[in-house]
Simulated assay, not measured.
Amino acid sequence: MTAPAPLDALVIGGGSAGLAAAAWLQRLDVHAAVLESGSSPSGAWPTYYSSLTLFTPARHSSLPGMRFPGPPDHYPSRDAMAAYLRAYAEHLALPVVRHADVIRLQAMNGGFHVTARDGRTWAARTVVAATGTVRRPRRPALPGAEHTGVQTLHARDYRHPEPFAGQRIVVVGAGNSGAQIAAELGRVARVTLASRRPLRLVPQRPLGHDLTDWLTWSGVERVPIGAFGRVPAASPVVAVPGLRAALRRGNPDLRPMFTALTQDGVRWADGTVEPVDTVILATGYGWNGSYLPPAALGPDGEPRQRLGISTALPGLYFVGLPGQRTVASGTVRAAGPDARAVVRHLVRHLETGHAPT
């Protein structure tokens, strides 16, 4: 039996970045498919904590070819974003293959061979990796962790505050997720937000306009990331509604990172020891490229790439990486522009048979 001809492109991952890439491929008549590990093309959104909302208003949260529904000034919820992605894939009739959990990608015969966990395989001339970060939570080594009885979770495992009612909780991390989770837990528990860097708050709507509007009007989000040097290690925290009030009430309170876990709590930097029920690590994620060959990744597990183009394997591309092209890269609002740039390069690669310079 003759094997089917390879696709021109495979997109791995059905979140916002992967669907945006698929939309651009469709516009340019590239024969492609999207491999989504879950039951629907909604990315990682259904796995986030239930109260999560975008920092970006709906008018900046659309993917190419379909406006985000509702008032343009509203901030979409977790569930609204997941529903939008499902509707987007259906509206554009994107070729999504569900339950296709990719475990291996191999460079073969000038193209790629892709294998899913259930044994299905695909061949493609090019691949766009858009698998995001949620499967690779960063868990810093905590002194004393091997002997502690304190429940230690990653923010990925947090859904809503009710199971933590009445507890003493330390949330680790001075980013947006850590601050929001700590403030939400402060309604039902005694919470400290602990970090190695001071919390840096920025207003969500300076002078009555969303922060994203100002970044768009100023042109900052269109400036190539190289113009700013390295991506900052710690981003400012957007002061979403209720966050400043929670901090003023002192729940959560802010403290420098503890020095160690004890048997039943933490040891703070001043030497005091305090009983704690739960530590929640809002310490971010690394990019999920476990299915890629080692040559495609650097020592830190991050892709070897420039502007979303693999510097190790011709024909391999990435979308959805923080710092990929601009300061907005890695966010929903940058998915369309970043995917467009990558797909343009991909099409030239298909036409010439090699990676253009």
Rank of each mutant, 00 (worst) to 15 (best):
T311S: 14
S39V: 10
A341T: 06
H99T: 08
L19N: 15
F55N: 11
G208V: 05
S329M: 10
D338A: 01
P140D: 05
A129W: 13
A183N: 07
H154R: 09
A227R: 15
P241E: 08
A328V: 10
A107I: 00
G111F: 05
T311H: 05
M81C: 12
E36C: 07
E274P: 11
W214H: 15
I103A: 10
R67Y: 02
S40H: 07
E184D: 14
V279C: 06
P206H: 15
T262H: 11
D300Y: 05
G308H: 03
R159F: 15
L35Y: 02
G111L: 03
R78A: 08
H345M: 04
L7D: 04
P299H: 04
G208Y: 00
V343I: 12
S51C: 02
A23R: 04
H209N: 11
L211K: 09
R344E: 08
H354R: 13
R159V: 15
D118V: 02
W214V: 06
A83N: 13
A269I: 07
G250S: 00
A3W: 06
S37A: 14
A129K: 12
A227Y: 10
G330Q: 03
L63I: 03
L142K: 01
W287P: 00
D29L: 14
Y48W: 15
F55G: 07
P299Q: 09
A17K: 06
T262L: 07
A335K: 01
G43R: 01
A312M: 13
I181K: 00
